[in-house]
Simulated scan of single mutants.
Amino acid sequence: MSHHDERTFVMAKPDAVQRGLVGEIIDRLEGRGLKLVGAKFMQIDEDLAHQHYGEHEDEPFFDDLVAFITSGPVMAMVWEGADATRQVRQMMGTTDPAEAQPGTIRGDLGLDLGQNVIHGSDHEDPGANEREIDLFFDEDELVDYDRSDEPWVYEDVDN
């Protein structure tokens, strides 16, 4: 990982997979200049869902969250780039797609709060990145490499 990079966890949720939006989500993140360093197409089981949404365990919507995230396959990913977590959150748009700005992933691709297409680590929760990445990926499943366009994405990279 270069000095200006941060890794963040992103998931295309079951509704994105079922609607064929995984490619568009990846395309948007790559187009922004973020680098994909890990990806896993998988079915989340109850145990992993409970760990992933652990902080919401006492909320009335917890069972619905678990039921939805286990309802079909997801694409779990790790992206890398400068201030990656905040960048991804900004690209995602607000949690409720009906209120998300046009141009954001949720603003363009979602309509329903419960089926909002994408999850990304919370940039306001210190350690959320590492916790979520560790939950879904082993270190040896993440690839460290230089992308050839980095000098065109970051002004401080030597050509």
Rank of each mutant, 00 (worst) to 15 (best):
Glu55Asp: 15
Glu55Cys: 02
Glu55Phe: 07
His56Met: 03
His56Gln: 09
Glu57Pro: 00
Glu57Cys: 08
Asp58Val: 10
Glu59Ala: 10
Glu59Tyr: 10
Phe61Thr: 00
Phe62His: 10
Asp63Cys: 01
Asp64Glu: 10
Val66Cys: 11
Ala67His: 07
Thr70Asn: 08
Thr70Lys: 03
Gly72Tyr: 03
Pro73Val: 01
Val74Gln: 09
Met75Ala: 13
Ala76Pro: 01
Glu80Val: 06
Glu80Leu: 00
Gly81Tyr: 02
Gly81Ile: 00
Ala82His: 11
Ala82Met: 07
Asp83Gln: 10
Asp83Val: 04
Ala84Asn: 01
Ala84Asp: 07
Thr85Cys: 14
Thr85Val: 13
Arg86Ile: 04
Gln87Ala: 14
Val88Glu: 05
Arg89His: 01
Gln90Lys: 13
Met91Lys: 05
Met91Trp: 07
Met92Thr: 04
Met92Tyr: 01
Gly93Asp: 09
Gly93Ala: 10
Gly93Ile: 08
Thr94Met: 14
Thr94Val: 13
Thr95Ala: 12
Pro97Asn: 12
Pro97Val: 03
Ala98Ile: 04
Ala98Gln: 13
Glu99Val: 05
Ala100Asp: 08
Ala100Trp: 01
Pro102Phe: 02
Gly103Ser: 11
Gly103Arg: 11
Ile105Val: 14
Gly107Leu: 09
Gly107Phe: 02
Leu111Glu: 14
Leu111Thr: 15
Leu113Ala: 15
Gly114Leu: 05
Gly114Trp: 13
Asn116Tyr: 00
Asn116Leu: 05
Val117Glu: 05
His119Ile: 07
Gly120Tyr: 02
Ser121Cys: 01
His123Ile: 00
Glu124Ala: 03
Asp125Asn: 11
Gly127Phe: 02
Gly127Lys: 06
Ala128Ser: 12
Ala128Pro: 02
Glu130Thr: 15
Glu132Cys: 08
Ile133Glu: 05
